[in-house]
Design a protein around this nucleic acid. Structure first.
Length: 459
RNA sequence: GUGAUUGUAGCUCAGUUGGUUAGAGCGCUGGUUUGUGGCACCAGAGGUCGCGGGUUCGAGUCCCGUCUUUCACCCCA
């Protein structure tokens, strides 16, 4: 009888065995690629001090942080006046000093600063851990989800950016995703645009609005911009940006003339074309890259190149994103360290791959053979045989009790076990064991050696 | 945080203007088959109708609250 009280928190999920095998496949591919490019693993605590987390993600972000209540009698240290008239803002710092990590980049920055004397710059790390956001769940959006980050700090070389493009391509190739777009832009270009249209300093507002272009259309973006205080003159000057020519070189050329009086914009353009050159030298496939000046990305700490990857033909937000941040460690008292990184969203990749049916059929990590449990007398022989088979490197199990064969075969069938080995009095007498192929229903009398050979070859 | 939406058996869902013991399919258990799964047939088990309150002679059905689901906005992976 199921208890109606039990359940899991909103926006969290259990991952059953079938789920986990698929998820691990994604994790493994990403891990292999990260290591191939010289990134090494790092893990940080689930909880950080709130002083580390707050103020790094904007006001919105602070609200989305999960806070952890202090241990013990957490109310005893609260000021009496705050207990009389509780206000969340006053009360919170007194009752909670820890929070769940919101992303992997800020904890990484904290780690770099704390270990500045020990780490070898440029420092390349990857990190695959869950993060938590107290958001309202919806499609492709959970309160607990995994990020797979790879970042390099301590260099401003654009080789890093071009290698990120390579890593994205390789991960997607390994996952079997073919139709995807790596959108790339540069914050300096966005800054250049605000300069060019006479809206200096309104870059943040500009980013939020322009980011929605493909979603809500040009008119709605113009409307939003003017509601955010952009003048008619600015919107007029912005007009050419909406109508840039298609090709990369044409786009760059078009922007170059617009940016003649914007050093920042020009620098952004040079970075973009340099990244293309480097990626080409690395033999990256460039057809997936789309230089898109409307790409903005919310996180305020990006200062240079920004990336976002979308899978086409699937209704889903971005499945990966990243960019360069010039001064992330600055907030922790270590200025002048530039970093760039990429983050894959496994949960979304999973949903996309599931929808496109891209998960491989045969999972070698699952059970290959089950020894049926015919009767108590045959059990010792069956167990010895099981160990022999396991030692040969075949994933195998024995049905733990001698119930009806029908039930045992049914169990094997449902678990997708391809072979069942029958060991009863008959088999022990002849020394030939009955190996049943569950797919075809064929059954053969074979020695243990023949069985091991057959399954090893088949796998 | 704003605005909608959902909740009935393990799962997917029926359930009439409020009216007796709340149904189906799939799944599950047992049997037809005492050493042979999938197919078929037969039988059976399984439900505080999300939770709490209210209206009513009577609530799965109407009202309020709450939780949950899904979706849009904000924002984001």
């Amino acid at each position: 009888m199921a208890n109606h009280q039990i359940g899991i928190p909103k926006g969290t999920r259990d991952f059953g065995p079938e789920n986990m095998i698929k998820r691990n496949f994604i994790f493994d591919q990403i891990k292999v690629v990260f290591q191939k490019f010289g990134f090494l693993p790092l893990e940080t605590p689930t909880m950080e001090n709130l002083s580390v987390l707050t103020g790094k993600y904007g006001d919105e972000g602070d609200q989305l942080l999960f806070k952890v209540l202090n241990s013990g009698d957490f109310l005893s240290k609260v000021r009496q006046e705050d207990l009389q008239q509780p206000q969340a803002r006053e009360l919170l710092p007194q009752i909670a000093e820890k929070g769940l990590r919101y992303d992997l980049t800020v904890p990484f920055a904290r780690y770099v600063v704390m270990n500045r004397n020990d780490i070898n710059l440029p420092f390349k790390r990857y990190q695959i851990q869950p993060v938590w956001r107290a958001d309202r769940p919806q499609r492709g959006r959970y309160r607990e989800f995994y990020q797979c980050d790879a970042d390099v700090v301590g260099t401003d070389s654009l080789i890093c950016e071009s290698e990120i493009i390579l890593m994205i391509s390789e991960v997607f190739g390994r996952l079997g995703l073919k139709n995807y777009t790596i959108k790339m832009n540069n914050r300096k270009i966005l800054t250049g645009i605000t300069e060019a249209i006479g809206a200096e300093g309104k870059e943040a507002d500009f980013c939020v609005a322009i980011d929605k272009l493909d979603k809500i259309g040009k008119e709605a973006v113009q409307k939003e911009l003017s509601s955010r205080g952009f003048t008619d003159r600015a919107l007029e000057l912005l007009e050419p940006f909406f109508n840039l020519p298609g090709g990369l070189t044409e786009k760059l050329h078009g922007l170059k003339t617009i940016f003649t009086h914007s050093a920042t914009g020009t620098a952004g353009l040079e970075e973009i074309s340099r990244i293309y050159q480097l990626a080409e030298a690395l033999q990256a496939r460039l057809e997936h890259i789309d230089f898109d000046i409307t790409l903005a990305r919310g996180l305020s700490y990006y200062t240079g190149t920004i990336f976002e990857v979308k899978v086409n033909d699937v209704q889903m937000g971005s499945v990966a994103g990243g960019g360069r941040y010039d001064n992330l460690t600055g907030v922790f008292g270590m200025p002048g360290l530039s970093g760039v990184g990429i983050s894959f969203g496994v949960d979304r990749l999973y949903d996309v791959m599931d929808e496109l049916k891209l998960f491989p059929e045969n999972q070698i990590e699952s059970t290959q053979l089950m020894v049926a449990n015919i009767d108590l007398a045959s059990e010792p022989f069956a167990l010895t045989t099981l160990t022999t088979i396991r030692n040969a490197g075949i994933n195998s199990e024995i049905y733990p009790s001698s119930t009806k064969l029908k039930k045992q075969l049914n169990y094997a069938d449902k678990k997708g076990i391809p072979y069942v080995l029958l060991i009863g009095p008959e088999e022990i007498n002849t020394g030939k064991l009955s190996l049943r192929n569950m797919k075809t229903g064929e059954q053969a009398a074979l020695t243990v050696e023949e069985i091991v050979k057959k399954i090893t070859v088949a796998a």
